[in-house]
């Protein structure tokens, strides 16, 4: 079992049970150097979070499996497109995963197959049917979510997990665009407060 310490800055080392540790910079350079063993390490470290995002977006396990594979192949093949000025490696990988999943979600073929109706309770359904890492078990998955209002969860889900623009959210929720911006800012602020207070 891995013991993971997420990095806060580039100098912080990431520890595995094997006692091999890497900094963020080493991870990036190892990926660019096409180090397969290091890539395997990156997969073990980040695949649960990426798979969680993908599954949350698609709500389809089979499709999520395919997308996860596609995402890591993109990460491997397009590592040179990562720009550290824009954020950490994990942020870039999250963007790749989210964008790939949303592209599929919005494709006509996927829509025809799924005909998924958005449901905010999917969060809880997903938690009950899929395993999570020990770190999340310790955090208490629903504990955080319960501190957000239903509207705030819906706003974040629509924006981040369904790839909706603010204009689309305004139409879905039937509120003015300015209201969406205000509520979204409040929701994220509330989320930040919760995350920081629970010391995730």
């Amino acid at each position: 079992m891995f013991v993971i310490y997420l990095t806060v800055n580039n100098s912080t080392r990431i520890n595995l049970e094997s006692s091999v540790t890497y900094t963020e910079t080493e991870l990036v350079h190892g990926l660019l150097a096409r180090d397969e063993k290091l890539f395997s390490y990156i997969y073990d470290l980040y695949s649960p979070a990426l798979f969680g995002v993908i599954s949350k977006v698609l709500n389809d396990n089979a499709a999520a499996n395919d997308v996860l594979q596609e995402v890591f192949l993109k990460i491997w093949r397009n590592a040179d497109t990562y720009n550290e000025q824009k954020g950490r490696l994990f942020t870039w990988m999250l963007n790749v995963a989210r964008n790939t999943a949303i592209d599929l979600l919005r494709s006509k073929s996927f829509k025809q197959e799924q005909k998924t109706i958005y449901n905010t309770d999917d969060l809880h359904a997903l938690k009950e049917t899929t395993p999570v890492l020990p770190i999340n078990d310790q955090l208490g998955f629903s504990q955080v979510l319960e501190r957000l209002t239903k509207e705030q969860r819906q706003l974040i889900d629509l924006a981040y997990y369904k790839g909706c623009t603010q204009e689309e959210i305004a139409r879905i929720m039937d509120v003015p665009l300015g209201t969406v911006k205000t509520r979204m800012r409040n929701a994220i602020q509330q989320l930040r407060t919760i995350i920081n207070s629970t010391n995730l």
């Binding site: 996860l68 942020t91 998955f141």
Partner: peptide, 21 residues
């Protein structure tokens, strides 16, 4: 904000099937 988002998405972390790796 990015790091807070990273921590947030960890809430949804799911171990993928090993066959994918």
């Amino acid at each position: 904000l990015q790091q807070e988002k990273e921590r947030f998405v960890q809430l949804y972390a799911i171990t993928p099937p090993s066959v994918i790796k």
